[in-house]
Design a protein around this nucleic acid. Sequence first.
DNA 1: CAAAAAATCACGCCTTTCCGGGATGCCTGA
DNA 2: TCAGGCATCCCGGAAAGGCGTGATTTTTTG
Lengths: 206, 206
Amino acid sequence: MIKVYIVDDHAVVIEGIYSLLQKEKDIEMTGYASNAANCLQYFSSHTADVILMDISLPDMNGVDLCRLIKKNYPGIMVLALSTFNQGTYIRKMMESGASGYLLKNAGRQEIIEAIKVVVKGKTYLSFDAGQALKSGTEQLNNIPPLTKREKEVLAAVAEGLTNTQIAEKLFISVDTVESHRKNLHAKLNVKNTAMLVRLAIENDLL
Amino acid sequence: MIKVYIVDDHAVVIEGIYSLLQKEKDIEMTGYASNAANCLQYFSSHTADVILMDISLPDMNGVDLCRLIKKNYPGIMVLALSTFNQGTYIRKMMESGASGYLLKNAGRQEIIEAIKVVVKGKTYLSFDAGQALKSGTEQLNNIPPLTKREKEVLAAVAEGLTNTQIAEKLFISVDTVESHRKNLHAKLNVKNTAMLVRLAIENDLL
DNA sequence: CAAAAAATCACGCCTTTCCGGGATGCCTGA
DNA sequence: TCAGGCATCCCGGAAAGGCGTGATTTTTTG
């Protein structure tokens, strides 16, 4: 009997999965939570085999919750659940210890299969998710890590501040700001402010 | 007996709503579809009182589907269903004839209430959705209409083209491009490229 | 048709970015 | 200890953008 727990802030999703899993003999739903806090509280005194976890929760994002769970209870398998089929999200979840990634448009069969796969310690990725992951790593999407300062400057630029204003804000000289911008341009392979801001927003670098 | 139909590409959501509505005596689920095409086909020979409609579907967006439904069957009330609490989406759905907007984190009570309200011809907005709408219209979010040329220039700017490149692309002089940019700055109340691009992306002006 | 809105082009002036260098400490991990 | 990444600062010239103002032509629309 596989014990499944759900964390999702959408009542209909919880209800739907509950309803779907009820028909399955060897799967049992032991509980659910609509936020990270309740989930963590539950596991301080209970356990489960698999957690179906929405990546966006009201009080914490799925990535952090997943990391916490895997750190404290490595035996529990986390199966990420999301509407978004974005390489970045998927990658982050997998890096945080998730055993799989399931899109919410998955049907009953797929959900059950995913649960059975991850409970054995294997990895399950929705077909589309797998695709997104691949195309993400193999293509240009590859964003080099930015330093703390660079991120600060980038955020300020995206807010529309001029170099002078940024310099004042960060208590550094205008030249330094320019240096950071130059590095950002080089790292992100852009050549002006417009492309920089666009890339920053679209890749959630703020 | 209120007849409810669901259009959503997430099996769990359909299952969840079905399960929730089953317990309600005076509401009946008459069918569902996981895409716009099936939905339209269904209504060519059936009807319903309320359609719960996801705003993002695989083959068509909710806004267009809503418009189609209301045009052909004005008597059917459309209740938009979405994860996103964004003023733009909400506004577009309402403008397309939807009777309400429900967030997917709504509980059983709220869903049922919403259905009962819209079937009477009234409007139902999730609390949060109402807030987003208000803050959208009443605050600065108010975006004046842009002309065709302005949109073209804006798109080019967001792509990272320089004024010279834009001029070549649109077969106009650099001065004209600058004029359009000046107008954009004035209309959108920004003062540099960074803010312009950011605002353009965040308000889906591309 | 006549008024309004949009699109076009122009000039001058100043500010800001962009770019290619170079330089100096500081800290960390191999 | 020492290389390398990081953050800091500097210079100078070229390019692009921002701002005010004004003008002409086309298009839209009441």
